[in-house]
Design a protein around this nucleic acid. Structure first.
Length: 468
RNA sequence: GGCGCCGUACCCAAGUGGUAAGGGAGAGGUCUGCAAAACCUUUAUGCACCGGUUCGAAUCCGGUCGGCGCCUCCA
């Protein structure tokens, strides 16, 4: 049984899709005004882990992710560059998808852009106006929070504690109350992007797109909605308010929020010089998989302190997995395994699943995997791991990879290329030298291989090699 | 000021009343021509600190100190 912490109640609750079959899930995607940073990707990777876990439970998935491709920053930057917003954002949408692929993030069933759904948003505004939950000020439309008893429940605000002097957008002077938020913005400048819609000329407010698109594709009420913790208020709070005011029913059953990451103990900020995009880390020689491992190693509800030392540790942890699989695949194994080892294998698999079911406790899941690695290595040494388990264990690691995306591939054992044949010849030459006890020659070949990025290891079962 | 989270070994981290998982790093050892990998041993009588509840607390309660988040840009 899967249990997740629902922000709506603040407690761990058993989760299953309302219809028992298909999980309807909406995720707040990137605002494409710039390249996504490593903080964004922590959220997206952990949402991906959730997505994969839900699939493993046997449910179908309808996962919608939005791309916010119109907002103040986009408009300003596009204008600076003399581009229309579509042309401006295209580059960042593409880059987001490339980075997502590099991090092995699965594509949602639907990726939807705000600017493709303006009519739906306008329709939602109309409904809110009709029902008296919205009001006009000039060509702008605002949502009226007053009278909604439930407002702010998600963020645990009592609704009236707006800090005096808090930031209030200067163009929203037309609001009846500071708590109200804009649904539809009248154009401020001549060259601003605008849409002619049933509610008038202008552009949508921030929160509107998610309500409109989520309800269009997932229905007025659906199972799961995810995002970073910073979205709890105001974004998700306002999504709930406007959606439920329009439909009169519960918008989302489960809200899941991913904690932020810090960098070297501090908030990541351009002004602190600790702001990283994925590309920045790859340029420093870190693998996307090490980055993903670091994300996965800390459960989603805990702040992750991102450090380069931590990233190196993650890379080393990956090495341990890689070494084990290499040994498992290349070892000379007996026919049968010991009962104790079989039991340990089943126990590890169980513990992995229990960890994941317990609010996606990825740290426990990884611990279960490493326990099995240690136990299997011992078994390999003692000759108690047989061919009857070899395939099962390999299959399990394929499954772990399908679930967490953190298992190094076995590419080094792949189809022999011309280079592979060259390496094999050198390895054989080295062994010939070793047999004739010409260790100087043997070591010189080892150095040559090392320069080619090849690691050579001598084992009781013979010499094996792989690319570093 | 209001609401909330966190503080576990050198680093990361699990743990939600029953006597400290896991990973990385370090030290010693086994194996080994060398090297690597692997394995074994080792690194918290103690979980920020002080009290309390309890037969028993890292886990519950109160307080103190420290760090972080949100209170209309934010993943």
């Amino acid at each position: 049984m899967l249990r997740l912490t629902n922000t709506l109640t603040g407690t761990l609750e058993a989760f299953e899709p309302a219809d028992g079959k298909t999980v309807r899930m909406y995720v707040c995607g990137p605002t494409v005004h710039d390249f996504a940073h490593i903080g964004n990707f922590r959220t997206f990777v952990l949402e991906d882990v959730l997505r994969r876990h839900l699939k493993s439970k046997g449910w179908d998935l309808l996962h919608v992710m939005n791309v916010t491709d119109v907002d103040d920053k986009i408009i300003a930057k596009a204008r600076e560059q003399g581009l229309d917003i579509r042309a401006y954002t295209e580059k960042y949408v593409r880059s987001f998808l490339e980075d997502s692929d590099a991090l092995d993030i699965e594509r949602p069933e639907m990726l939807v852009r705000a600017t493709d759904h303006v009519p739906e948003m306008a329709a939602l505004v109309e409904t809110l106006l009709e029902k008296g939950h919205a009001y006009r000020d000039g060509d702008s439309v605002y949502f009226r929070v007053a009278g909604l008893a439930e407002y702010g429940r998600l963020a645990r605000l009592d609704g009236k504690d707006l800090k005096p002097g808090a930031r209030v957008d200067v163009d929203e002077y037309g609001k009846e109350s500071p708590r109200d938020f804009v649904l539809w913005k009248a154009p401020k400048h001549e060259d601003e992007p605008r849409w002619e819609t049933s509610v008038g000329v202008g552009r949508p407010g921030w929160h509107l797109e998610c309500s409109a698109m989520a309800m269009k594709y997932l229905g007025p009420g659906f199972d799961l909605h995810c995002g970073g913790v910073d979205l709890v208020f105001p974004h998700h709070t306002n999504e709930i308010a406007q959606s439920e005011a329009a439909t009169g029913r519960q918008f989302v059953r489960f809200w899941i929020h991913v904690e932020h990451l810090k960098v070297e103990g501090q908030k990541m900020a351009k002004s602190l010089g600790n702001f990283y995009r994925l590309r920045d880390l790859l340029d420093r020689g870190f693998s996307p998989q090490a980055i993903r491992y670091l994300y996965v190693s800390v459960p989603y509800r805990k702040q992750l302190n991102f450090t380069f030392a931590g990233l190196e540790q993650a890379a080393h942890s990956l090495d341990r997995i890689r070494e084990f699989l290499f040994r498992l695949r290349t070892g000379r194994l007996p026919e049968r395994s010991s009962e104790a080892l079989k039991t340990a294998f089943l126990h590890a698999r169980e513990r992995f699943e229990h960890g994941m079911d317990d609010d996606l406790n990825t740290a426990v899941a990884l611990a279960a995997m490493f326990d099995l690695i240690r136990r299997a290595n011992t078994g390999l040494d003692a000759g108690e791991l047989g061919r009857d388990l070899q395939g099962d264990i390999e299959d399990w690691f394929v499954e772990i990879d399908r679930r967490l995306g953190i298992v190094p591939s076995g590419d080094e054992d792949g189809v022999a290329s011309a280079r592979d044949r060259e390496v094999s010849a050198l390895v054989e030459a080295r062994n010939a030298a070793r047999r004739s006890r010409d260790f100087e020659r043997a070591d010189s070949v080892r150095r040559q291989l090392s320069d080619m990025g090849v690691v050579v290891e001598d084992t009781p079962d013979g010499t094996r090699w792989r690319y570093r």
